[in-house]
């Protein structure tokens, strides 16, 4: 998507009361976690900007910024790995557990990690 198309899209949203701030709930949660961790002084905004920039500058970054929150999550993972809070492998395992828990949860009920049929 060209810059002009991105602008046109954004202005279309603006006509409809600005459109949603986040395209999907996980983006909102990922955003808020970074704000919360900064509040806890886990990192400075400068550190965060460096981490996010490193992800955004990776080869293959999309021109239309539709991968922006993917980069955001990757930056968060890199920072918490760097600070020895969790390794990427820990996050992989837990994410898989969440997906199994979702599969095992009947429709209409909240997805809980305890619903994962495999022992952790």
């Amino acid at each position: 998507m060209s810059l002009r198309e991105l602008i046109a899209h954004s202005q279309g949203l603006a006509l409809k009361d600005g459109g949603p701030v986040f395209a999907e709930p996980w983006q909102a949660d990922a955003f808020a976690m970074v704000v919360a961790l900064h509040d806890k002084a886990l990192f400075s905004w400068d550190e965060w900007a460096q981490a996010l920039s490193a992800q955004l500058k990776r080869p293959g970054a999309l021109e239309d910024a539709s991968d922006y929150y993917h980069c955001w999550v990757a930056a968060l993972e890199s920072l918490i790995a760097h600070k020895n809070i969790a390794r990427v492998a820990d996050i992989d395992h837990l994410a898989a557990a969440w997906q199994r828990a979702a599969h095992a949860t009947p429709h209409g009920q909240p997805i809980k990690l305890e619903n994962d049929p495999e022992p952790h």
Partner: peptide
Amino acid sequence: HHDNELDPMAARVRALETILTQKGLVD
């Protein structure tokens, strides 16, 4: 077909939130 699906990014963010909550870093 399953009743509930979490796409990979949604599952990943839940995993991050679980870890950070367990460590007392986010509420």
